[in-house]
Design a protein around this nucleic acid. Structure first.
Lengths: 350, 350
DNA sequence: ATTAGCACTCTATCCTCCCGAGTGCCAACA
DNA sequence: TGTTGGCACTCGGGAGGATAGAGTGCTAAT
């Protein structure tokens, strides 16, 4: 994008003003609020040019201009400078996150909550992608005849479990044998390398009768597979209703309708993550603006996520969905800071 | 409430019409839609009377009447007749709930989801009140030095666990001793009779050094206490935005804002439950209408819950939050049916 | 007790008008 | 060539006003 300096400044100013006032900005108010050493007519020419480039647009003929998706994109990519949080703001966030918790999941929920409160938008986090973590322990506990609990401890310091049904006849001892056999042969294996076959092979060494054994092994396998399922935590949906951007009930409804399908949102975040990886994108955050987001009803939103790390190979996403008319520099640094703190806290678990 | 038959019919008709049209109903349209064998003037007199009794009210002088909270209350208490669901509707609900799951929690979530889908409103469920259930098993598993998992199996067929921190020096054997001691002495005790003292007494019989022991016992106690904490599952908040009753953004915002604080809603449901018990109320459902609900922003809502039973002594609530302008007879039977199915399914877990 | 008739009330809706902010374009200027 | 003042034009939004329509309460008659 080739823009001379003044045009850059104009676009910058338009985005800033529109973000803060929520009103289309005209050439005159631009002059009043900023110290351009030119007349409004000159800015009008610049603005015509910017509009021609598709960076800004007018809601109707006699209104001022608002940034287009492309305009926001340009702003985010080249124009804005990310500002650090003030020590006060940092403290506020630290205080909220540092609540001591015993499980990573709680920590992530904390962070999500904090993010929604500090940004005032919808926040979300994905649970860690555990496919790359490996099994450290696996125990099957008899609960009662026909019912057992599979407990797995993963390398990332995460504990997962699942209640499973097992044949009624099996006794404690048999279960322990199977449990031991699986543990022995699968310990150290990354979850994504464990298949039904691997588990079945592991169980062969026991002397438990075939059909019974097979069912238990299958359930154990199912438990392991469930352990690396992704969860998403969404919070603060109602905050969107307070934003003027969603004062139209229709938009608000579409937005919250889409967000209520958390599985769909999770899928989308996953896509974003994969796309970023393929592109070798090593920015510390990802941004999607307006129509760039392929979820229905999010046309007026921006989606910003960062990647947190539980271990070197196990990571997840945390971020925000807000109106595209947002203070990007601020929000990005908030997310970034929360992510940083989250990473620090996570070290305590691994 | 002393009402002659025709006045009852009039109130009934007003509620029905208002529920289905969402428009204040006048004497004339009442005549048109129902077969009263009197003139509109007579109904006007009746309506003036009903208004005097506080059962209906007018939004403004020249509009028709709408039911007041008291009017809905009268309708619900004495006027309506609950209609059975059609076989078709029943089938639809059964199909959704019968999805096989391994845990009670999943089952409850299923039911909540179903309820929101079939009513089109916000649905909610409380996790079972486990205070009255007793401990069947308690195991403490070493995960790694300094970290253990407390697994509890409760009489209601529920499995709970919690990761806890323990002193680094403790070894597997010591933990097993403690675990065994606690289990031995607490098995069969209802959760609400287990105190820190009980747990500490249980642990005395082991030969683990005092300060280390104490910490583990405390953590075990904390895990037990956490097991009977109540959770609430809320679903379908966004559906409220599609209702004409919440077409004003302000109302919608207040409502969703309140619902976003699930802890507060849970507390309120608890209060309702307790109040009903104290009154010895053995209706199969509880209803709160409009201002009867003491939560902010729910003035235009009704809150209907039923009690499901996991065992004789362990129960929880499931229900709906909808606009007070709702088809009570239908919604109540939907909730009732879901509850019935939920109870049936729960038998499989206990 | 019920009814017909009537005057009255109030909202919702539709028009119309007008203000003001903003634009695009043109001609003049540096 | 880039900048500027001037000006006619556009359009949305708000104010004001008229009107229709649904509904009410009251009264007098049945």
């Amino acid at each position: 994008m080739q823009l001379d300096n003044r045009k850059k400044e104009v676009l910058h100013a338009i985005v800033d003003d529109y973000v803060s006032t929520n009103e289309p900005v005209g050439s005159k108010s631009l002059i009043e609020r900023h110290s351009f050493n030119v007349s409004s007519a000159t800015l009008r020419n610049d603005m015509a040019e910017l509009e021609h480039l598709g960076l800004i647009e007018k809601p109707h003929t006699s209104a001022g201009r608002i940034p287009s998706d492309k305009g926001y994109r340009e702003y985010v990519n080249s124009l804005m400078t990310i500002e650090e949080l003030t020590p006060r703001e940092q403290l506020e966030i630290e205080k909220r996150i540092n609540t001591s918790v015993d499980e990573v999941t709680e920590l992530i929920k904390n962070a999500t909550h904090t993010l929604s409160e500090t940004t005032g938008f919808v926040s979300l986090a994905m649970s860690p992608r555990l496919k790359k973590s490996f099994l450290k322990q696996l125990k099957i506990l008899m609960i009662e005849p026909g019912k057992a609990l599979v407990v797995m401890v993963l390398s990332a310091g995460v504990v997962k479990d699942k209640v499973v049904r097992i044949p009624n006849f099996l006794n404690d001892e048999q279960i322990m044998k199977i449990s031991g056999a699986i543990e022995k042969s699968l310990t150290g294996k990354p979850l994504d390398e464990i298949t039904l076959v691997t588990v079945e092979t592991a169980g062969k060494s026991t002397d438990v009768p075939e059909p019974l054994l097979k069912q238990v092994l299958y359930e154990a396998y199912a438990a392991i597979k469930q352990a690396d399922e992704l969860n998403i935590y969404l919070e603060g949906e109602h905050r969107m209703l307070s934003l003027p951007d969603f004062s139209s009930l229709g938009r608000a409804r579409d937005l919250l309708g889409t967000l209520s399908d958390s599985g769909m949102v999770a899928g989308y975040v996953n896509e974003m993550e994969n796309a970023a990886r393929e592109l070798g994108n090593d920015d510390s955050y990802m941004i999607r603006i307006g129509q760039e987001i392929t979820l229905e009803g999010l046309d007026d939103c921006s989606f910003i996520t960062a990647t947190y790390n539980l271990t070197d190979s196990v990571s997840g996403n945390i971020g925000v969905i807000g109106p595209k008319r947002m203070l990007y520099s601020k929000v990005i640094s908030q997310i970034d800071f929360v992510k940083k703190k989250l990473n620090e806290e996570m070290k305590k678990f691994t």
